[in-house]
Structures are given as C-alpha cells and as structure tokens.
Design a protein around this nucleic acid. Structure first.
Lengths: 225, 225
DNA sequence: CTGCATCCGCTTCGATACTG
DNA sequence: CAGTATCGAAGCGGATGCAG
C-alpha cells in the first residue's frame, strides 16, 4: 500500500500527507462523535467505498492516531476510536469547521446530515469571549428507525466564553428542531419566535430567549466576508 | 473541470472539498509567505506539476480565496495572493502545523526546506500564555543564488504571549543558523551554547539566552505524546 | 451480520513536451 | 513567464465475494 509523500521538511506538509486525503478528515469527525464500528462509519459517510475506508483506518492506526477495540460477544464488533495522539486532530477539525462555514450554504439536494454532527460543530463555533449568562438546551431528533432518541446538548454562556456540554439537563430554554435548522437559528438568519409560531420548532420555555443563540456562538461572524 | 463533492451538509465536508486536495494546503502556505508568481510556486513546491498547480490556483480563485494581480512592466508578472476571504485559511494552517509537529521528525533524505517557512511556522507555535520578556532575533540564510539575503524575524515574549514579527531589529540575542537547526533549537533538543562552541550557529549576544527559546514557543509540547 | 479483499471502469495525478 | 496538451500510472467508487 503506497503512501504519498511531499519532499518537504515542514510540519504542514507532514500533516497534509496524513490528513489531506479524501475521506480522512470526515472519518476523524465521526470518531469525534465517539467510537464507531466499520459499518457505522460506512453508513455515516455515504459514498465512501469499503476499500478506501479500510485503507484510511489502517493508515490512521499505523500512525498511532486511531486504535481498535474488540467488543466481546454477544454482539461482537470492532470499535475504532481516537488515541490520545489522535485527539490532537481536534483543533484541526475545529478550524476547518470554522473555515468551512463560508461555504456551507446552500444545502445541496443530496446532502446527508447526521444529527450527531451538531454538537461537534457547535463546539467548534463556541465563542471564546464573554457571552450572555444563559443556558440553552438543544435537541435534534436522531430518527434512526423511528427510535426517536434525541441528540442533546447544553450551551452555557459565561464570562469565560460559551461551553458546550453533550448532555441533557435544565436550561433557561430548550429547543428541539431538525438539524437542518440549527445553522439558520444560530446565525440569526431565521427568527426562533416566528419559527415557533409556525410550529416548525418545539420550545420549552420562552422562545424569545433563543434570540441569544447568535451571541453565544461565532456562527454569524464566520459566515460573512 | 470536474470538482469532487461530499454529499454532506457539514462545514467540515465543505472545507475538505476545498482544502484537502493534494498540494492545495502547501500552496496556501506559500501564499502565507506573501504574494507569489506561478514560477515561484513551482520552484518552492518541488514535485508539483504545472497542470495541477494551474488547476489549484484556478479553483482557489474561483472560490474567492486567491486573487491574481498583474504587475506592470518593466518586469511584468502575475502575482497570486490571498484575498480577505483567503486569509481565513490561516488558522487552519496554524493548527495543521501544530498537529504536524508530531510527525515532522525525522527529516527525509530529499526533503526540501524553504527558509521563508520558518517565520510562518514559528507564528503557529507562538505560546499564548505569559512568556519570558525576551526579544530573540532569528536569521536564516536564504541562499538563492548566493545572494545571501537572510530571512529575519523577532520573537518577542511578554505577559500576553509570544509575538512573532517578520522583520529585523534590536534583540537581546540574535541567532543565525541553517533552517534545519531551528526546530531542534526551539524544541530544546539541541543546546545553543554547545552548538555555538562547535561553530554551527552564529550568535550576537549571550548564547545562553537562547535557552529561553523553548519557553517562548509550544514546540517541545507539541512534539511529544 | 461484520469487516474487510478483489475486480473493474473512471477520474486524478505526475512527468514531459510544447506554446503564446 | 505562465501556462496547455498529452499520456501512462496511481487513486477512487461501486459492485461483488467471502470468511468469521
């Protein structure tokens, strides 16, 4: 299995050899959602071929960025997960997400959208400076087979910036909506009060508090110029 | 000219479509050194074919990330440079450089090393927290045709972190050495006093002050675990 | 079922040659 | 100097096969 190399003594070139191949960064994003099986990854990455996925995982493992863990019976499986070294990719993913906001809209006809991407993305967009002291809960339906488990997160504003916690809990206001609406709401493109009145989102608490969403995140800044 | 697309509504996927192709990130690094001509880029990126370089530049221009500027006679040329939008790539380059440090050593036999990469890399490694209040000058010889112009920079420690200025000026101590030694010196792998005694580096001022280099930068942290 | 390996047709890449 | 043209090689997506 040959591997491409740039003849350059430069950390950027080394990073590009490892990460800048087709699918590799998206595999990393999936692992940032937690350990995944081979078949999970195939389902969550429509279009990837099994041979390429196997090759990428093997390469990441060989580099020490990803480890496999065998889950014993009754439902045996191989889980792929980040090593400590692999977690070093997370800041890279963060900046790529922030950069990519410039090109995210419009949605394209066949675009897939995995609910679990929402918390990972919002972590990347969390504002660093002081933000309004609000706790906003977000739930997006994870409708795999109508099991209707929600992906949940808490956005917690504060003087040291916004923190994202991937769990459910008490909040000043809680929003439940399709993942496709999260970007428009966090950027301020769509008004949560209007959406609530139209019945396109579910809100527990005062929907007007959701107008603070853009203040908690860098989304609107990152989507312009 | 077809373009690859991931069928995913996700900023990371969009960013990967644009940046995670062969050579694109390295082209961006060159533009981070300043405007460049087509032939500059070819020389600084050994191995890139003219057709791929042209295709990448065309794509970056079409995305609004890079602009061309015509320089009028007497020495007419086309310069490629970042747009404001293109400068949004810089944080991505920064994190990739920081990640890539894990895989930078060892140098490979045919590795090229452009002196102008040094200031760009050190900007990426500048420590954010309080650092010793020292000003350290670094000069690396840019021996293109023995013109012996140096690439110069100042590393300025302070309570708000280390700043990197790409210019010459007064410093507590100034180091002049081959670019290949900069990584070993800034990570603390090699001792500047010993190197100075061996005559492998030139120093103006007290060579012992160069032992503060690792404290000004994140290099040693980023190269481990 | 899961976790791949193999084959095939298509796209992309690298090297060289050539042009305004 | 700034690219385009060409062509063999490598990489990729999709389908299929197969062992545990």
């Amino acid at each position: 299995m040959p591997e491409f190399r740039y003849a350059q003594f430069c950390p950027l070139a080394r990073a590009s050899e490892i990460l800048a191949e087709r699918w590799t960064l998206l595999i990393a994003r999936e692992l940032a959602c937690g350990p995944q099986r081979f078949s999970d990854l195939r389902r969550r990455l429509p279009g990837v071929s099994s041979s390429v996925l196997a090759a990428r995982l093997a390469r990441l493992e060989e580099r020490g960025l990803v480890a496999r863990r065998e889950v014993p019976p009754p439902s045996p499986a191989t889980l792929y997960e980040f090593t400590r070294k692999g977690e070093r990719m997370l800041p890279v993913l963060r900046e790529l997400m922030r950069f990519g906001l410039l090109f995210t809209e419009p949605m394209r006809p066949d675009d897939h959208l995995e609910p679990e991407w929402v918390p990972v993305a919002l972590e990347a967009f969390a504002r660093g400076g002081p933000t309004p002291e609000r706790t906003i809960g977000i739930r997006v339906p994870d409708g795999d087979g109508e099991g209707d488990r929600d992906v949940t997160l808490l956005l917690r504003g504060g003087p040291a910036g916004t923190r994202v916690e991937r769990l459910d809990g008490p909040a000043d206001v809680t929003l439940r909506c399709e993942p496709i609406l999260v970007l428009a709401l966090t950027s301020g493109q769509l008004d949560p009060v209007a959406l609530h009145e139209e019945g396109r989102i579910e809100v527990e608490g005062d929907a007007a508090l959701l107008r603070d969403l853009p203040a908690l995140l860098d989304v609107s800044d990152l989507m312009t110029v």
